[in-house]
Design a protein around this nucleic acid. Sequence first.
DNA 1: ACGTTACTGACATTGAATATCAAATTCAAG
DNA 2: CTTGAATTTGATATTCAATGTCAGTAACGT
Lengths: 141, 141
Amino acid sequence: MKREQELLVNFLKQKGLKQTGQREKILEVFLANMKHVSADELHAIIRKSDPRIGFSTVYRTLRLLTEAGLAREVNFGDGRARFEKAFDKGQHGHLICTSCGKTEEFVVGAIDKAIKQVSSGVGFKPMGHRLEVYGLCKKCQ
Amino acid sequence: MKREQELLVNFLKQKGLKQTGQREKILEVFLANMKHVSADELHAIIRKSDPRIGFSTVYRTLRLLTEAGLAREVNFGDGRARFEKAFDKGQHGHLICTSCGKTEEFVVGAIDKAIKQVSSGVGFKPMGHRLEVYGLCKKCQ
DNA sequence: ACGTTACTGACATTGAATATCAAATTCAAG
DNA sequence: CTTGAATTTGATATTCAATGTCAGTAACGT
Ligand SMILES: [Mn+2]
Ligand SMILES: [Mn+2]
Ligand SMILES: [Zn+2]
Ligand SMILES: [Zn+2]
């Protein structure tokens, strides 16, 4: 069993929640698609192999995965929440092309360091952050 | 006349748009309130001194001010757009308390530098960015 | 002053997020 | 295995901010 699946099972047990076929399936498809995906998109993908799974369940399960630390919500400024894998994957920034929508990830240690420094300077306790850079990708400029 | 007012007048002329009492008033109140304000909130404030101004006009004028470079849209993760002054005020990050909602601004040169570096590394042309740090303020932790 | 054009504000519409609830499913206890 | 309490599901309804519509109003060049 994959480590992500184990984590979910433990999370459910610990919370007194139930293990269901839908939750298994949704996690499986979510992990197999390594892009940033909205609840709608994920639902559309899952429907192909199991048309009986409802949008509500996909939506709720994405929240659940987020709570469990398996998913992370991201926002690219188009007014629609997207989710990405969070297990074994630290916070990172996104370069977002405002012309074609393409996104690219990046990690820079200097940024995390700067955030820590600024936070401690004012007594703020940082729990997470979001860094989006908007502009034009190579193709679009 | 304030420099912001002049900028708006020029912007309107250049675009073939009209100077109206509403636009003047909205800019004036927007500038007087130096917080991060939503269209709704700004409308509520303006209504006190002029109940005839409609929400639509406030909303559209905020977009206009954004286009003119007088306002900037910010988002604090509560699913509602807010606006802040952008004239003579560069991009900056925000520390956002997830408990009480308090926000604090900060500027760190290292971050802008890191963004430039990462961008040029992949041929991306950055136009603007958004950095939000979520956590607990001094009081709330 | 006039006519053209943009503006205004009340109202309607959209769309994503979230709430509701009856029927179905899980699962621990017996 | 059966039972029953508790959770889950999925269709549907609701919410709420953002945006669209449009007839009446106001700005401004001539
Ligand atoms: Mn990502
Ligand atoms: Mn700010
Ligand atoms: Zn592009
Ligand atoms: Zn606080």
